[in-house]
Design a protein around this nucleic acid. Structure first.
Lengths: 346, 346
DNA sequence: CTCATTACTGGGATCGATTCCGAAAAAGAC
DNA sequence: GTCTTTTTCGGAATCGATCCCAGTAATGAG
């Protein structure tokens, strides 16, 4: 691999001039520029990003740490992140912490040591978060997406989980359900508490007392949701509707229900949360709370880049609105057309 | 952010000694080691990966380029990659090319310029692949996963797609189906051709003539598969079974079928390919061809690391076996237990 | 023709680590 | 006590770029 000096020698100019051509500076004559370009092409030269970043103290890269890289929930968020990042000439690299706090810690260190200019963390909180405080104290650009940490002086992007929970529950109440269970997500995740709050608020508005037994927790995965859902479906007085903490968990409910010969939506109404792509694809199509994920992603990237390029900027907290997408799983019947849901804005 | 010299000054030693402590070299006395460690902790020092990589000409990082970062197909593959990579003390970074050839090109350049020691490419081929040849010529470590390029002197990891197609089709034939359609994946992808070949071979073995009209192509997505599936389901003589190019496309078939009031498996038998996690979760649980994805991932990472650490090594081609997982979508009835498929080894 | 101004170009320091080689100090041999 | 060997440490070069500052050539003004 040739370096900048060899290119310079070949083009019979100095390193400095090659660098100028590379960075499209103006003060280089057309003729030398052509010579340099030719040398670059001839030698198949590609500048070392490493050396460049080292001297400039800037990598033009943002790191994205996800709880699980293949969670469909992140799909469009990532798209939003990339769109904005590329617009500002930033590259993106991803790391998946796969729910393993140690892995997460490794990754953060891995990326922080000069590999990226800032970090975007998204997903659910697990384990000790002290190193996040450390990062913030050291003024390392950090934006958290749906990843709430108490009293952390940094930017947050989140959605109105409480409102979403309210929408979902109210929809079920409007359909006449009175015994509505909630299969909540990870007990320690803030989003779980918020969605639960929305659920309680809706019940309250309809004068229905909150029943402890109707709320069960599980992880945000289908596998984990199955036994939890079974617990709800085998209560002495079975709920007629369930509001699940996310779409994947809603599939767990369907799964569990089928094993008990309960059919959705015939015997059980079901609402999910997230509106992942698959929600409209599988049978029954899921009624669910929609998150503006493209916006979440672009907002997050934008916020982070602002923070990188202007370290003095104050952290911001952004909350995006949710909406309800009515499909089949509540038997609401509003939507015969398969998959194309009636979108009810909040 | 302190650098190694400042740490050295504080510990009253030279940079060299600090570096030795950092890299756990043996020739440093216990006492100075302690002093250095203390200084490191006091100053909250973290070595710059950039500077280290620059001088060592090694990043200890492998790049993974995926066609779509959130395709559930990659989930366990990525897990396999990470397990092996971490075992060998490599970090991993991901980039998603999102089917955009230009984006892909950008990413490859982005990662190649000294950011990673080698590249793992997985997913389906789109666009011009000349730069891949260029990489190989320059002896840049590269391993392709299910990403076949003609006459490229580099390592490949793939699965026995032909065998998988055969298994899927034979299963349908064994169940008595005689008019079996194939909803093939991306026309230009090699995997499509291979799976199609398996389909034809199985038909041949049962003495059934191949009918052009029974094969339709679409992208590897649910959305794209829907119209294609409709084409098959509205043939004058409707097929009684469909072998779909992957699981997501199989969902497209279910989707299309429902719109036409055709129910799977009652009116139509269906086999997918990949065995993504969701295949066992949704209704009906999908009978599908299983790929050993964890092994694919670990194999790929292992092969790449071998190539990085020993540039003289010859490229290898690995083909892993597939197996059939029988669930509900063929109405085979072997499996009442929901989701837990009878695994028929090839 | 001389001097001032502008347009290009190059030298050398720098970013933050590693590594080779040699030097000093300590330990051991006789 | 002297010489050799081992242990421990430091100096200087290096990786491959960028950038400040200064120097040269070309151009224009008078």
């Amino acid at each position: 691999m040739p370096n900048i000096s060899e290119v310079a020698k070949r083009a019979k100019v100095s390193r400095t001039t090659v660098s100028r051509v590379l960075n499209e500076k103006e003060d280089v004559s057309e003729e030398t520029r052509r010579r340099v370009m030719a040398a670059i092409k001839d030698m198949n030269y590609r500048p070392s990003a490493l050396a460049r970043s080292l001297v400039r103290q800037k990598t033009d890269t943002i790191g994205v740490i996800l709880s699980d890289i293949t969670d469909p929930f992140f799909s469009r968020i990532v798209q939003g992140v990339e769109d904005v990042a590329h617009k500002f000439d930033y590259g993106t690299v991803y790391a998946s912490m796969r729910w393993d706090p140690k892995l997460k810690h490794n990754y953060i260190n891995f990326l922080r040591n000069g590999r990226v200019d800032g970090l975007l963390m998204m997903g659910h909180t697990v384990g000790n978060e002290d190193y996040l405080r450390e990062m913030v104290e050291e003024n390392f650009p950090l934006v958290l997406v749906e990843y709430w940490i108490e009293k952390l002086h940094t930017s947050f992007i989140s959605i109105d989980n409480g409102g979403g929970g309210y929408l979902a529950t109210k929809h079920l109440l409007d359909l006449g359900h009175r015994r509505i269970a909630h299969l909540a997500g990870h007990r320690k995740a803030r989003v779980s508490a918020e969605r639960l709050e929305g659920y309680r608020r809706a019940l309250g508005d309809f004068g229905i007392p909150f029943a402890e037994e109707l709320v069960v927790y599980s992880d945000f995965t289908t596998e984990d949701a199955i036994p939890a859902a079974k617990k709800l479906l085998t209560l002495s007085v079975r709920p007629t509707a369930i509001f699940a903490g996310n779409d994947l968990m809603a599939y767990g409910v369907i799964h569990a229900a089928r094993e008990l010969c309960i059919e959705v939506p015939r015997d059980l109404a079901l609402v999910g949360f997230d509106d992942i792509e698959l929600a409209s694809m599988v049978t029954p199509a899921l009624t669910t709370v929609h998150q503006p994920r493209l916006e979440i992603g672009s907002m997050a990237a934008w916020t982070l880049i602002q923070q990188i390029e202007n370290k003095e900027i104050q952290p911001t907290t952004t909350e995006l609105k949710t909406s309800l997408v009515v499909r089949e799983s509540c038997g609401a019947g509003v939507c015969k057309g398969f998959g194309i849901g009636l979108k009810v804005e909040k």
